[in-house]
């Protein structure tokens, strides 16, 4: 594994599929080293923290293409400069995911989309107005009061359909679970 540049964690093998977001996986492993850092040397103490923050920025949908370059550069810096093995290997999960799944990173920063649908900040819950019968189950259960009635009544329905205000939505998914007509989907 090391030879083809896919060192992620400690050498243990983890099987993943398209439901796993690679940026999120990198974040997961990095959090571990950030917590484990003893705090003695600069590259590990501050560097890995900044690395994690850059990943967070990307999964929050605020990343840019320049951030990807910065991320990669910082990884190589930390590998070369950290005092002990912990810091020197800390960037590996980021580097391997960047190498093999760069398109996923790019999707996060350019399209503001998480292909695996994992990164909450990049999720959107959308109501299909033609499927929605206007029962209001979702509205009653939404903890963020993000759902409201529209003026639109779909053909064959009696009540106006609803819509979700993405600014108020906290992406809990309760509405989707409550809609018996599969009118709400995650995008």
């Amino acid at each position: 594994m090391a030879a083809i540049g896919s060192i992620v964690g400690s050498g243990g093998l983890i099987v993943m599929d398209e439901d796993n977001c690679m940026v999120d996986i990198a974040k997961f492993f990095l959090k571990f080293t950030v917590d484990e850092s003893c705090g003695k040397c600069t590259p590990c103490r501050i560097g890995t923290k900044r690395l994690l923050e850059l990943l967070e920025k990307i999964t929050d949908g605020k990343g840019t293409l320049e951030d990807l370059d910065k991320l990669e550069e910082l990884c190589y810096y930390i590998k070369a400069n950290a005092l002990c093995g912990l810091g020197q290997t800390a960037p590996n999960p980021v580097l391997s995911t960047l190498r093999y799944f760069r398109d996923e990173y790019v999707a996060h920063v350019v399209e503001k989309r998480c292909p695996a649908g994992v990164c909450k900040h990049l999720l959107r819950f959308v109501v299909d107005k033609d499927k929605c019968i206007g029962c209001g189950m979702c509205m009653r259960n939404c903890p963020a009061s993000a759902i409201s009635k529209t003026d639109y009544i779909a053909t064959g329905h009696k009540l106006p359909s609803v819509e979700i205000d993405p600014n108020k939505c906290v992406k809990c998914g309760v509405c989707m679970d409550n809609c018996r007509f599969k009118a709400i989907s995650k995008q």
Binding site: E36, S37, C38, G39, K40, I46, K49
Partner: peptide, 9 residues
Amino acid sequence: GANERGFAT
């Protein structure tokens, strides 16, 4: 002396 660890040191 140093208190805590990692970034919080």
